[in-house]
Every structure is written in structure tokens, then in C-alpha cells.
Amino acid sequence: MDRQGNELNKEQYIGAPIERAHLHRGFNSKKTPVKWIRFFRACVVQREIAEEKKKKKIKKIWFIFLGIFIGTFITSPLTNISPVFKILPTTLGMLVFPGLIVAIIMTYRTNKKFKKNFAEGFDFFADYFSALFTLIEEDLQVESKIALEANLKHTITKENLIKNEAYTSETSGFIKGEEEHYERVISKGSCLFYDESLIFFQFTERTRKRIILKRGSSGKRKTKYKYRAAYPFTIKMKIPKNKYQLNPSVDTKEISFVEDDAYYVFKVSRKFDVKKENPEQYNPYNESSITAFAVDYFSLEVINLINTCYSCVTPSA
């Protein structure tokens, strides 16, 4: 009972090699659920620590600049006491403009360095997969590992472009439009259940980017970008024939089914789509909408996919 309620503290993460997961915007490994959960937490906490540090640094930069700026005004009355003091406001005044440039450059550099080292959007990934792995933890074979490969890069990049096509609209002012379709496999992996069923999963982001050139009410031409994203989660499950019998009625509309010598093989999918499921939360100007789904909801929906596969079989008595 010793570990009850324990939380990992920040000190445990400093200097851990987790940063590489961010740097490479992904990882590929096999770990037990607990180790994965620890790894996810470490990634999130490390980023938090680095972000705190970054903010402090930027604050300091601007604090120094502000000091120079205010100093110019504070020191100018000193000139009235003795002309010797004139050197103070003059020097400080001369530093204001270069100081501003240096502060802007340093802020930009600090932000850029942080962005380069730490992937955005890791928190949702950590939350979703920690929840999912916790739910299946007891159904895995003892000490069995989950293989997981993750790609946390941006979806809207050249290599993820699947196709693009022309887009037309009847709205007033419309000049021309284009639609680009992107797809990125966020993660995929596999694990072995206690009953020797094999689970394969894949989680994908599909994004449609709409580029619209239109004439505004003032007559000026402008380009608008709109996004629509959906997230299919696919489960393939191989259930051993020596342990289960196939039920007579398998709904092949929802479930794809094949069999080999040793397994019944099922494939089911659940597409997470904010616009369909929760239209108020949908924002066409956001590239990604994955964070709109609650962790509980996401993990239960995915668990239900495994449930759906199991509903096709009965253990052999």
C-alpha cells in the first residue's frame, strides 16, 4: 500500500532522456503499461519544466529592457542637480532602441529553441494513451509489453499530403478554392491479452485544409484557410480459435471479419469527429480538434471497439 496516492515529483524528471521523444517528435518502443504511463508523464512534466524556464528567461529579458526604458526618465531630473549626471539618461536613452531590438531577437530565439526541443500536443497524447493502457493493463499477460510507435509531427506537411483538388462555392465574393487532404498516423501498436488474443491498434489524424480566395465586402481580395479534422481509431483483433467459438451472427456492416488457421480476425473502427459529435466545439480555423474529446470518453470508446470484437465470440466450454 506504500505507493497509494503517490505522484511523481518534478525532480525525478530533470535530466531524463525523455527530451529525445520530443526532439524527434515521436518514439517507437515496447514497454509495460506502467512504464509507458511513467514515460508519458515524464514527457509532459519535462516540457512543463522547460516551459516555465523559458517564460522566466523571457520575463528577465523584458525586465532588463524595461529597466533601461524607465531608467531614462528617472535619471533625467538628475541633470538639474549637476550637468555631470547628464551622461546617465543619455547613455540609457541611446540603449533603448538597440535594447528593444536585442530583446525581440532574444525572445524570438528562446521561443524557437523551445519549439524545436518540445513537441506541441503531447499532453493529449499522454492523457489518452495513459487512460487506454490503464484500462487494458489487467487484461494483458503478466509483464507483457505494449508495442507503441508514435509520430507527433504536424499533420499539415508536404509528406502527409494525400491529394488536392479544386473547390468551388456559391457564396458571394468567391473567386477560387482548393482543398488539400492530409493524413498522419499518430500512433500504432500492439499487445497480447491474457486469453492470447492479439490486439493491433492504429490512431490517425485526417485533415482537410480548404484554401479560399475571395473578395471581401470592401472589394479587397483575401485568402481564408479552413480546417476539418477527423480521427479514426482502428482495432484489429485476433482471437484464438482454440479458446473461442464464433457466434452465428456477426454484423459485417460494422465489423470486418476473416479467419485463418488459428484465429478469428476482426477489424473495427471508430472515427472521432468533433463536427459531428459536438458541433459547438468545432472551430474551422483550428488545424487540430483532437483535444476536444474528453479522456474518459475517448478511452471508453476505444475499449468498446475491443468489446465489439469480443461480442462476436463465446469461450469454448
Binding site: 500500500m1 505507493r3 484500462l135
Partner: peptide, 24 residues
Amino acid sequence: ELYSKDRSVWRRKMIHRFHAEYPY
């Protein structure tokens, strides 16, 4: 917190919800 012994408490709570919300 999932990285703690309470993970199994979380799991129980979620399993209860799963039983209640899905044909299981």
C-alpha cells in the same frame, strides 16, 4: 493520478461506467 497505486481505483471507476454505458 494514473502513475500511482490509485490507477486501479481509476480503472474500477471507469469499468463501472463502462458497464453502465455500453452493452458489455
